[in-house]
Structures are given as C-alpha cells and as structure tokens.
Computed example of a mutant assay.
Amino acid sequence: MITHIQGRLVEKNPTDVVIDCNGVGYLLNISLHTFSQIPDEESLKLFAYLIVREDSHTLYGFSSVAEREIFKLLISVNGIGASTARTMLSSITPQQVKEAIAHEDVALIQSIKGIGAKTAARVILDLKDKVLKVYDLDENEVSVNKNNTNKDEALSALEVLGFSKKQSERVLDKLLSEQPDANVETLIKDALKKL
C-alpha cells in the first residue's frame, strides 16, 4: 500500500496534482480542501490512498492523515464511492464532516451535491459509532445537538408546505435559540406564524 508520496510538484489543479518522485509522475486526485492546503513550494508530500479496480488504479492524495481517515470511513459506506467522498471533502472540511456525523446533522450532509436524504441518513447510521470511538468524542457532548433531528423534520415539513429552505432554516434557528427543547410540532406551528 502506498501511504504517502513526496516529491516535486509538477502540476496543480483544483481536482488533482502531479508529483514527480524520482522521475516518475504520480497523478493524485485531491479534494478542494487539500488543494487549499497545498503550499506554492516545489517540494510536496501528500498522504495517499490507492483504489484498485478491474479497469483502473486510482491514487487519492490528502494534505493530512485525518482527512485520509475520514475519506476511508466515507467510502466504507454502501452507496458512497470515492468521487462522492471527494465531493463531500471538497464541499465541507474533514472536521465539519466528522462533526456532522457525530451530531447527526442530516441537513449539512444532505446539502452536499449528489447526497440525498437516504444517503445522508445511511452515512450517519453507519459511521456515528466509529466517529465517536475513533475521535474519542463524548456521547453527551453530541446529544446537545440532538434537537437537530427535530429541526430537520420541521425543515422538511416546511419545505413540503412550499417555504424556502433558507428562510425556514433562519426562522427555526431563531426558535431553537429561544426554546432549545421544542418538539417538531411546536417548531412547525411557531415557524408558520413567523413565515
């Protein structure tokens, strides 16, 4: 297994880089997060992950081991391929991915292009325990955001009723800051009064 590649940066694009390592050019697919972390120096070291398929050998590069670990967790979920995982890490930071999973923030994961409600729920269901264990997060810290599921349910109900997501989210955030323990029904009723 190739764990990292270090060499001279030959080419740098938002989706991939080419690193010359002793005369061999390696093409590594990267996320926008990694792209933003790459310095404009000639020497570069990226942590790598190799995916071998029948028709291709594809290298993925990451600016940190943490990002690579999140990527590996994401691709372990049924229905999430390497390109979807890379899109997720391009849309939000690895830290935000980790927190969204731990806090069961379906809305944030679903806001990523190509991720539907079912996939977002599956990501959380499959990875929450692993994320809590691997990153030693406390379940109690996480339960503070448990009302996110109430917010998500209220938000989807308001969307079904024809209200815009952004406006509804703003109203719900305000309501939750005033009464954090509000249930879904209360949230919807109060939001309807304000929308």
Rank of each mutant, 00 (worst) to 15 (best):
V24N: 00
L32H: 13
S31P: 11
C21S: 15
Q37S: 12
D20S: 15
D40A: 13
Y26C: 09
L28W: 06
T34L: 09
L59G: 00
S36K: 12
N29D: 10
L28P: 08
T58K: 01
H57F: 13
Y60V: 06
T58S: 05
D40P: 04
I51R: 10
H33M: 03
H33D: 09
G25E: 08
F47V: 04
R53M: 01
S31L: 10
P39T: 13
N22R: 13
I30R: 02
E42A: 09
C21R: 11
D40K: 14
K45F: 03
H33L: 05
E41Q: 14
A48S: 15
S36I: 05
L50D: 02
P39Q: 14
D40C: 10
T34S: 14
E41S: 13
L50G: 06
D55G: 07
D40N: 15
L44I: 11
R53S: 08
D20Y: 01
L59N: 00
S36E: 14
T58W: 00
L28R: 01
N29R: 14
G25V: 02
H57G: 03
E54K: 07
C21M: 13
I51H: 11
L46I: 06
Q37H: 09
E42K: 12
D40T: 14
E41A: 12
L46M: 06
G25W: 06
F47G: 04
S56I: 08
H33T: 13
F47P: 00
L44V: 11
V24S: 10
L46T: 01
G25P: 04
P39N: 11
L28N: 07
S56V: 02
E42W: 02
D55T: 14
V52I: 15
S43H: 08
C21F: 07
S31T: 15
A48V: 08
N29H: 15
T34P: 10
F47Y: 15
H33P: 00
S36D: 14
I51Q: 10
N22K: 09
S36P: 05
C21D: 07
R53E: 09
E54I: 07
S56C: 07
S56R: 11
P39H: 07
L44N: 08
I51L: 12
G23S: 06
L59Q: 00
Y49W: 12
K45V: 08
H57N: 11
Y60L: 05
